[in-house]
């Protein structure tokens, strides 16, 4: 029954059924007569006001003066006459504006079909998230404190290092010099660290072996600004978050994909229903096989 879940196919099926029923109820053929009665007039008024409420249209009609009613009827007839004549002359053919308008209508139908589907379950979201795991991957980040030495060849830093042993993350504030930015970096990404210290420094502290890196003062490590002694208290490798951590994003992405999918599936189905022919090279690029046109 997957086919019936496709909004377009469902729409076409319902449309066909309605058409069939309509023909059963109205056996006479449409002979092109312009019918002016309450029903067609009210439909016209609703289109004109772009509000689809028959009772309101009726009230509107009744509140018009005789002259306004006359004008409304004239407009209706004139519009209908010109429209029929245009159709008879086949003016709708090869009109790109009309074509785009029809395509737009199809888009709306497909979209509203996808939007009205029930909200996805956690299982569906979970498997969607897993499918696009890379999009939700949490960037690696690092937490560290540093002691900074400006214009240092490394010797001042090295001389300070023994004094820092035994001191914790936030206990070395009195050593070193004033740095441009922060003394502590908490849960910062590679890009952030690279913007403050330069690429080489960021690369080093993200690549240090963690066993030796954690919980002690290390260095000196050079940056764009000088030398640094570093205390890395945590480094988190990139990881896949749990659904609850990123639920909002996953849901939005899921719905967007469902919308695009619905349209793609519909377009695929239509490829099967329509004869498509032409230059072999183009058909090949579209991965289509030449199909003979059905006899009319």
């Amino acid at each position: 029954m997957r086919l019936l879940k496709e909004p377009l196919l469902l729409f076409l099926a319902v449309g066909a059924a309605l058409f069939y029923v309509f023909n059963l109820l109205n056996p006479e053929q449409d002979d092109g007569t312009i019918i002016i009665n309450d029903e067609t007039l009210l439909t016209f008024i609703q289109y004109r006001s772009k509000v689809f409420d028959e009772a309101m249209a009726k009230t509107r009609w009744q509140s018009m003066s005789a002259a306004e009613q006359q004008q409304m009827l004239n407009d209706f007839l004139e519009e209908e006459l010109l429209y029929r004549e245009a159709l008879a002359l086949e003016l709708e053919q090869d009109d790109y504006i009309i074509k785009r308008r029809l395509i737009q209508k199809m888009d709306f139908i497909l979209q509203s079909g996808a939007e009205s589907l029930p909200a996805p379950s956690d299982t569906e979201l979970q498997s969607f998230m897993e499918k696009y795991a890379a999009d939700y991957l949490v960037q690696p980040h690092i937490t560290f404190a540093h002691v900074y030495f400006k214009n240092d060849d490394g010797s001042r830093a090295e001389a300070t290092l023994p004094k820092l042993q035994g001191l914790g993350f936030s206990e070395a504030g009195e050593f070193g010099e004033r740095f441009l930015y922060h003394r502590n970096y908490v849960e910062r990404t590679y890009d952030y660290v690279a913007a403050h210290f330069g690429e080489a420094f960021a690369e080093r502290i993200f690549a240090l072996e963690l066993a030796q890196a954690s919980g002690q003062w290390l260095g000196p490590i050079g940056s764009e600004h000088g030398q640094h002694l570093v205390f890395i208290s945590a480094r988190v490798a990139s990881y896949q978050p749990q659904l609850d951590e990123v639920r909002g994003r996953v849901l939005a992405d899921y719905q967007r994909e469902r919308l695009l999918d619905a349209k793609q599936t519909a377009v695929q189905a239509l490829k099967q229903q329509h004869a498509i022919d032409g230059k072999a090279e183009f058909l090949q690029m579209l991965q289509l096989n030449p199909q003979p046109k059905e006899a009319p």
Binding site: T143, A145, F169, S170, G173, N184, V186, S233
Partner: peptide, 8 residues
């Protein structure tokens, strides 16, 4: 808050 202990 979250930075307790890490920031002066």
């Amino acid at each position: 808050g979250l930075n307790a202990g890490l920031v002066e």
